[in-house]
Structure formats: structure tokens, C-alpha cells
Simulated assay, not measured.
Amino acid sequence: MQSTLHINAYSLRFLAVFALVFSMWSCEDVIEVDTPSEDPRLIVDALIRVDTTTAFTNVRIQVSQTNGFFESIPPVDLQQITLTGLEGGLSAILLETSPGVYEQDISTPALSSGEEIFLQIDFENEFYVAYATYVPAPQIDELKQGDGFLFDEDDTEVIVRFTDIPEEENFYVFDFGFGNFLASEDTFYEDQEFVFSYFYDDEVETGDELTISILGADAPFYNYMNQLVEQSEDDLNPFQTPTLTVRGNLINATEIDNDEFFDNVEMENNFALGYFAIVQEHKASLTIE
């Protein structure tokens, strides 16, 4: 029996379109984008917040390492993290409690005595160091919700009132949660009560409880936080190398062999990201209505 294949004009048009689509799909190339890269750099979160009403402070330092674009930042396996009081009042080794997180409960009076504290991080046959001295902070006198807005009627206003520590040049860092910080100096409200507003956009809703902190700061930590806040506000292209790397106070001291010479001028690009600071923290909370 002879079989006959019948293909009408509609079928031919369908086959032609299918062949065109298939050829376009099968010839699709994978485009690989070269992103800027550099050697991995240590990242250290060593902001120690002290509540002087407690006998012990949980010192928690988190360490990770930079990685390429589109990749997770891995925790770091360190040899050791130590805190030492230069006058011999403090000596502590932090223990790893989870990947990249090192903790130890340390006497609050030892941290807040005003003694200069030395941090050393041993990593891959090198060591990073920084100094910090406890910085006090004032209480938050009042925290309340306002009804104003900045750019949008959906903004949520919180009003903060506090009194500057008298007879000193003071710097403060406010932590508003959600990764929002504000650095302030007392140039225009020295020795006075100060009231200001902070606005949240769409991050908070009715019923949310907000906890806001005021942290003490010295001038270098204030400058560091100011730069961080400014850089975080820039709308950077993710494929563009950032124009600014905010440098903290952790340096690679492996090649420094003079106890009286604390500098790595000859290795100016060999440093860890992050900052080591010991600051008093006062908190206040409110529920959004």
C-alpha cells in the first residue's frame, strides 16, 4: 500500500516558524561578564557595646572574608582572637561559638575602666591589630512617635531627645535598626539638651516595636561611621568598582617589629575592613501606632 504525506500551507507556515524559533534558541550563547576582583580581604565586626549596669559584657566579634561578585561571603577559620589591657587589667581569649563568630563574657568594669584595650586577630600566619578605649554615652531622655514626614506621607517619624555630656567634645552614633545609623557631633548643641527627628520609609508598620540605641564614639570612630553612611547612600553600579573603601583601624602588623612603632605605612593597602571600638550603649523602645 502506498502512503501519501499531505502538508498544507498552514502546516508549512507552522514548521517554518518552529524552525526559526528553534534555531534562535539553539544558537543562544552564554555571556560571561568579567567582574572586578581583588585578593580576599578580612572583614571584622568588632563593635563592643557595653551596658554598665551589668557585671559582664558579652564580647562578640564576627570575622569573614571578601569574595567575588555573586558569591557568598565565607566565615573565616582563625587561629585566635585576644583582648589585652595594656596595663595588665584584662586578658581574654575569645572562643568560636559558630562559624566566624568568636565570643567571651568579660568583666564590664575591665572594659569600661578607660584602659586602652589591644585586639589581636591571628589569621593565616599573619596578625591584625587595633586599639580601643571605652567611650561613654548619654541616656536617651525621651523617644516618641511624631506625625511628620520627610518625602512621603507613609514615612514614620520618631523623635529623639537626649542631653549632651557636659564640658567635653562629644561624638555619638545612633543605631535605628534595619542597618540604619546616624553619626552626630555636639558642635551645635554642646552641653545642651538636643531634640531631632528620624524618618523611616516603608520599613516599619503599625504594631512594630523599635529599639533605638545611642552609642558613644571618639573622633576616629565618628569619622569612620560618617563615611560608611555616606557610601551606603550612593547608588553604585554593582559592576563598577566602588570609588571609596572605608578604612577602619585594623591593620596588618605582621611585618612591624618595633614595639614603639605602630604603623604600616609601607603596607598601606594591607588592612582589614571593619572597626574595633568599645562604646557605652543606651537603648530606648517604642511601639509604632
Score class of each variant (00 low, 15 high):
T206S: 01
F171N: 11
L273V: 01
I212E: 09
N170Y: 01
T245F: 15
F221K: 04
E255M: 05
Y275M: 06
I278D: 09
V173H: 10
T241H: 10
G216F: 06
E205Q: 02
Y189W: 15
V279Q: 11
D257Q: 14
I278Y: 12
N237E: 07
E268L: 13
T254Y: 06
N258F: 07
F261H: 07
S213Y: 10
V195M: 08
D235C: 02
D201M: 09
N223F: 11
Y189M: 07
S213K: 05
S197K: 02
G216T: 07
A272G: 03
F174Y: 13
E233M: 04
I256L: 07
T241F: 08
L250S: 01
F194R: 15
D259K: 12
F176S: 06
A253F: 04
F196M: 12
Q240R: 14
Y200H: 03
N170P: 02
N269V: 05
I212W: 10
D235M: 09
F196I: 06
F171I: 10
E230S: 08
N252F: 08
I214M: 09
I278E: 07
E193K: 14
Y172M: 07
V195L: 05
Y275K: 05
E203F: 05
M267H: 10
G216S: 03
E209H: 02
E167G: 00
N249R: 03
Q231R: 08
A219Q: 12
T187S: 13
V246T: 12
D259G: 14
Y275C: 04
T254H: 12
Q192A: 15
P242I: 00
V265P: 00
V173K: 07
K283I: 05
T243M: 10
E266A: 14
E167S: 12
P238Y: 10
N237I: 08
D202R: 09
Q240I: 09
A277N: 11
G216Q: 07
Q240T: 12
S184E: 05
A253H: 04
N223V: 03
F262C: 01
Y172S: 04
S213C: 01
D202H: 04
D175M: 10
N264D: 07
E233N: 02
T254I: 04
